[in-house]
């Protein structure tokens, strides 16, 4: 087998190995399925409840994507504002760091009071949790400019906006796309957390209610579906990142 094919198969082998160990351990120790179902029982549940699972997954997916979209929009604007002036950078950075330190779950009760239970708190939690890395990355990319390059441009009469558009913005793109990968996974976390406490739809809700009825195979099925969705989205943005900012990955994939 060639080394490259081996490498390509490696992640799948790891998944299969993990599933085997999972199923093997549960069987060997004879753990009752209402505590910790094996891989097969989970897979069965996934097929039996395919209808409800896909309905709830869809709910989780679209709320996450909407929250993520909001996060990207707000993150870009805030990042641009903060990154484009030293003063704003100095002024806003501590605030942002402080805000980021708040566990976003703490916002869910507030959001429920304001918007009731349902999709809105899920969207907003996803948004709150995911916009921060985007702001930081865009701002950092914009704010870094070699003083000498600045001189080269300023002597030509370049205005602040020229420098931002010609240098800052293109330079911050790799940072931006890198942050999207992080942000989309965080957005899923936000949505699911919110769904477990403040919704009657979505994978988070499904897992919560199935758990309370001791239907553990279904809970685990939800877990796997959510991680699969997050993984696919992550890969999507990883590919997008590579496509959009080839120059930043020079030498790696040539």
């Amino acid at each position: 087998m060639k080394a490259t094919t081996k490498e390509r198969l490696a992640p799948w082998l790891a998944v299969i190995a993990l599933l085997a160990i999972w199923e093997g351990t549960v069987r060997a120790l004879n753990v009752p399925p209402f505590l910790f179902p094996g891989a097969l029982a989970t897979f069965e549940a996934m097929i039996t409840f395919a209808g409800p699972i896909s309905m709830h997954s869809w709910q989780t997916l679209w709320t996450t994507v909407v929250g993520f979209g909001l996060g990207v929009a707000v993150g870009l604007v805030l990042g641009f504002i903060i990154g484009s002036s030293r003063f704003m950078y100095r002024a806003c950075y501590p605030l942002l760091v402080g805000f980021n330190a708040i566990p976003k779950v703490a916002f869910v009760p507030i959001l429920v009071v304001w918007f009731g239970i349902g999709s809105v708190p899920a969207i907003l939690t996803a948004f709150l949790i995911c916009f921060f890395p985007i702001v930081v990355n865009v701002a950092t990319g914009l704010a870094t400019l070699e003083p000498e390059l600045e001189d080269v441009l300023r002597v030509l009469g370049a205005k602040r906006l020229d420098v931002l558009l010609k240098v800052g913005l293109p330079r911050s793109l790799p940072y931006f796309f890198a942050s999207l990968k992080v942000a989309i996974t965080l957005a899923f976390v936000g949505t699911v957390v919110s769904e477990t406490v403040a919704s009657n739809q979505g994978i988070g809700y499904l897992m919560m209610s199935a758990g309370s009825q001791m239907r553990m195979p279904l809970v685990f099925a939800g877990l796997i579906v959510i991680s699969a969705m997050a993984m696919v989205m992550y890969e999507l943005f990883a590919v997008l990142e590579k496509r959009m900012t080839r120059w930043a990955h020079r030498g790696q994939d040539r």
């Binding site: 070699e146 000498e148 390059l149 001189d151 080269v152 010609k166 240098v167 293109p170 330079r171 793109l173 900012t245 120059w247 930043a248 020079r250």
Partner: peptide, 10 residues
């Protein structure tokens, strides 16, 4: 022009 060429990589 400076010691570092400072060309834009993109």
């Amino acid at each position: 022009a400076f010691q570092n060429a400072n060309l834009l990589p993109w």
